[in-house]
Design a protein around this nucleic acid. Structure first.
Lengths: 359, 359
DNA sequence: CTGAAAGCGCTTACAG
DNA sequence: CTGAAAGCGCTTACAG
């Protein structure tokens, strides 16, 4: 309980440093001295070595000394000896940009923690120099591996230095087959699930408002739509596929074209589009889901859960992406080099589609 | 350029490990040997020591050796010697829960990086044990200090172990005055700014829909409303203050009561409420801002920027909170123990308030 | 069952 | 201008 305060006699002096105590943190050696054993013995009891046979009495003394001194092992020294740290690096090209990028971090952090690893993060905002520095930093801290992630699903190049570490691409993939382990959302399955929500509700004539921006999501979500129709024995009609910019304005602006189509249901590329469409539909005196059923994609919580009516959609599994990335890195999950692992986008049904409207 | 591949002769074997190369990473000693100097010299040139006078020719040889071997300093060893690492810890009680919690991380990360620090994050989801473990981990990695943050502005207790480090509370504060450095959003100023947007537009009778949930934000945002009215010489009328649950449903549900008030403008506790109110107002055939002007609070991007009309609001400065926390921790910004530092909530004007409606 | 010693990869006085 | 040596705090064979 020895805690050397700076100004023991001067209680009135403002405590400038909130730091508790000693200039020099307590070391293994000090614990050993207090317990009257060697540092080796202390190390052994701390690390609970199986085959180390330590007398209970000795172990006891050591444990007490540790508690009494408030000893904390120096992880740096530990790592120096072992050669590899308990860090996993996560480089992201934008936590800023999107509300759910944070979920990748969250999933990675939880999973890493579960296996005794801490997350070292760096946000590069897409800046190549920053990225290089970030990777260098992680390499210097001898991370166990690096998760290289993007805020939206896309192909990516692989920085040279990244190859100096074990790494997994998260939410992105290398266009060069076999070049890297990667985990991405299963856009096609998601699109299929979204369409099926509508199909199950009895709709046969379903429009799809796709994005105008090229991306794996654009192709995948369309493919899923086609797959679902095919499964249901409904011929694909290209006229039912519209395109708009993937935000509220885009969805709103697509309203008129959509109404020309004479469909009873529409699947939107994302929730934001659906949000805009809600406004457009409402302005036309149409109600959801009675007059027209709507499903989105992304499950962007703030929007989807609170639109009126709450939006049925499909969830982009960011949390799972981060977690799976960690498991693949640690060799806990299979991680083929040939192709990216796909994570399911589960359907989230709410009230924008009637339970059964034999439209 | 010596890179010892695992199976040099067996090109057909699948490359299981994407890791480039050597089992043993190259060390300072190897660089020294290749350059024909001592390790001390190499260390000196790497760290660009001012007073170290090294012959240009020697420096040159060392630099080449480093490049040739692809040497990366071992940060662990470095830290061991210096005693304190280049880490700043960030413990958060929920990255998950809210879309903007990620901004605290983002701001902290950017600022930390700017000063040569890396961010070590841990998400505790409010779990005390996890929290203790997270702090212990950070302490063991000898972090320079810890940012203890909450996903919404609130009073907080301070875990004992946190006091073993330098720390700053971010988005939260200790109810015990003088107990800790802290940085929080300036709710009162924000509420004042929100109200002033309306005042400047000519409104005199302004309702405030506050939250039902007790929080510093509840008191502060109300105080700001009162302050703004007082500055404008308008007596505060308690009847104009409604309360509702702080989400879309709450805002929607408050519509009728609001309409009883006969106001020309309304300031909502947050953007989500405003979003619900938009729907309620629209259902009553009212248009924004012509019939009634609306301002929100939070500047929750996905919502505020894309409602129709786009919502005027006040920004919760999460990014700045994270950045300021780092600066306070590093002693770059003043950080009084007596009271929390307040960060301004800047107004973000969009189209839900007319430029000039002499209502 | 426990201790003495070497070593992980660096940096920092101290000589020269 | 540069090298030899000690030491940061730990762990790991190796003795005993």
């Amino acid at each position: 309980m020895i805690s050397q305060e700076k100004n023991p006699g001067n209680a009135a002096a403002p405590v400038v440093h909130a730091r508790a105590g000693r200039a020099h943190p307590v070391t293994l050696r000090e614990v050993a001295e207090l317990a009257g054993v060697s540092t080796a013995t202390v190390s052994l009891v701390i690390n609970k070595k199986k085959n180390a046979r330590i007398a209970d009495e000795t172990r006891q003394r050591v444990t007490e000394a540790i508690a009494q001194l408030g000893y904390r092992p120096n992880a740096m020294a530990k790592t120096l000896v072992s050669g590899t740290s308990k860090f996993i690096g996560l480089v992201a090209d934008g936590v800023a940009t999107t509300p759910f990028a944070g979920q990748i971090i969250h999933g990675a952090q939880d999973e890493a923690w579960k296996h005794g690893y801490a997350l070292l993060i760096a946000n590069t905002e897409g800046n190549q120099d920053l990225e290089k520095d970030a990777i260098a930093m992680m390499l210097e801290y001898k991370v166990r591996g690096i998760l290289y992630s993007t805020w939206f699903h896309r192909p990516t190049g692989i920085p040279d230095t990244l190859r100096e570490a074990d790494f997994v691409l998260v939410n992105c993939f290398s266009p060069d087959a076999g070049a890297a382990r990667a985990v991405v959302p299963d856009e096609a399955q998601g699109g299929q699930s979204a369409t099926q929500i509508l199909l199950r509700s009895g709709h046969r004539r379903i429009a799809f408002i796709n994005t105008t921006t090229p991306a794996p999501a654009k192709d995948g979500r369309l493919q899923g739509y086609k797959d679902a129709l095919e499964d249901a024995g409904i011929p694909f009609d290209p006229d039912l596929v519209l395109e708009a910019y993937p935000d509220q304005e885009g969805g709103y602006g697509a309203t008129d074209d959509l109404l020309q189509l004479g469909v009873s249901a529409v699947y939107c590329y994302n929730d934001r589009m659906a949000m805009g469409l809600y406004d457009g539909l409402r302005e036309n005196g149409l109600s959801i889901p009675e007059d027209i059923a709507v499903v989105g994609f992304d499950n962007q919580e703030v929007i989807a859960a609170h639109l009126r009516p709450p939006l049925s959609t499909v969830s982009l599994p960011h949390y799972e992406l981060g977690a799976a990335g960690v498991r693949m890195l640690l060799g806990l999950d299979a991680a083929p080099l040939e192709s990216a692992v796909k994570i399911a986008c589960p359907a989230v049904e709410r009230d924008s589609v009637a339970a059964h409207s034999p439209a």
